[in-house]
């Protein structure tokens, strides 16, 4: 399976949780207090609650519904609050995916050879923003090409999140000024307006 760019490193700081889509799979991406990044099936094994609504407690992600805790190392359940004295069997665990970070972008893939790293990004680029467009990758790439951004170099990464929805991650020349970055952010909106119209 391929690595999918699901968001920016800076958008998931320690203690934060987000939802991501990876090849049709609903996933939760979160970072522990000490900084360990994990990507799991976005479903609590207990009663199916989306773990992306959960909260971080140290090195655990806790489910919002009944507070079951799952550890960053291996996704094994470490606490069932309704039975606080019970040591949960290690068969209770979340389904973990592979996650990696490079050049400020978070990548997730469902499975694959562990030593194959995510694609390298051209040097000298900074992550700008990630945002969603209700269109397919091909149409977006086409729309973007028809409207070249003049002030600075941009690079676009795509993650299809549904048949007609795509998460676009935009990188910009690391030398770009704040004003150029804001212009580029507006350019993203222009492309979206055009492609969705």
């Amino acid at each position: 399976m391929t690595w999918r760019p699901v968001g920016l490193t800076r958008d998931v700081p320690a203690g934060r949780v987000m939802r991501a889509w990876v090849d049709g799979q609903d996933a939760v991406v979160w970072r522990s207090t000490r900084g360990v990044l994990s990507a799991w099936d976005n479903r609590c094994p207990h009663r199916g609650m989306a773990l992306s609504h959960g909260f971080v407690r140290g090195e655990d992600l806790a489910c919002l519904y009944h507070g079951w805790h799952y550890g960053a190392e291996g996704g094994v359940c470490s606490l069932i609050p309704s039975h606080p004295d019970l040591t949960p069997p290690d068969t209770i665990k979340t389904r973990a995916f592979q996650s990696a970070e490079s050049d400020g972008v978070i990548w997730v893939r469902l499975e694959g050879s562990p030593d194959l790293a995510p694609p390298a990004i051209a040097p000298g680029l900074d992550p700008l923003r990630s945002f969603e467009i209700r269109a397919r990758e091909g149409d977006i790439a086409h729309g973007a090409a028809a409207k070249p951004f003049e002030p600075a170099i941009l690079s676009l990464l795509f993650n299809p999140i549904a048949h007609d929805r795509t998460l676009v991650t935009v990188l910009i020349d690391a030398q770009a000024t704040s004003d150029q970055r804001k212009l580029a952010s507006r350019w993203c909106e222009d492309v979206r307006r055009e492609v969705e119209a």
Partner: peptide, 9 residues
């Protein structure tokens, strides 16, 4: 309600 709308399946 916000729990119920987020259970899967």
């Amino acid at each position: 309600r916000s729990i119920l709308e987020n259970q899967r399946p």
